[in-house]
Amino acid sequence: MKLHLSHYFSALIITISLVTVTAFSKSADAATTVLTDEPLQTDANTRNYLPTGANALYSKVPGQSGAKVLAKATDLKTLATTADQGQTYFRGYRVAQTNDGNFYLKVVSFNKTYRGWIYVGTTNPADDSTQVSNGLKSVQTFKEGTLDPNVANTTYYFSTPKSSTLTVTQPDWTQYKVGRNLSATTSYVNDSLNVTKVGTKQNNRDNNATYYYVQDAANPQVNGWIKASELTTVKQTYNY
Rank of each mutant, 00 (worst) to 15 (best):
M1P: 06
L3Q: 13
H7I: 09
F9G: 03
I13V: 13
I13C: 10
I13W: 00
T15N: 09
A23C: 14
F24T: 12
S27W: 01
S27P: 02
V34C: 03
L35W: 01
Q41C: 08
D43G: 02
N45Y: 02
Y49V: 00
N55I: 06
L57P: 03
Y58E: 11
S59Y: 00
A67D: 08
V69N: 09
L70Y: 01
L70E: 06
L70C: 10
K72Q: 14
K72T: 15
T78V: 15
T81M: 01
Q85A: 14
R91W: 07
G92E: 08
G92Y: 03
R94T: 11
A96Y: 00
D100A: 14
S109G: 08
Y114Q: 05
Y119G: 09
V132S: 04
V132R: 00
G135C: 10
Q140L: 11
Q140A: 12
F142I: 08
L147T: 03
N153R: 08
N153V: 10
T155L: 03
Y156G: 06
Y157E: 14
F158H: 01
K162N: 15
T167S: 07
T169W: 02
Q170C: 09
W173Y: 15
T174P: 00
Y176G: 01
G179H: 05
A184D: 14
D191Q: 11
N194Y: 04
V198T: 13
N204I: 00
D206S: 04
A217R: 01
Q221R: 12
V222H: 02
K227E: 00
L231T: 05
Y240D: 07
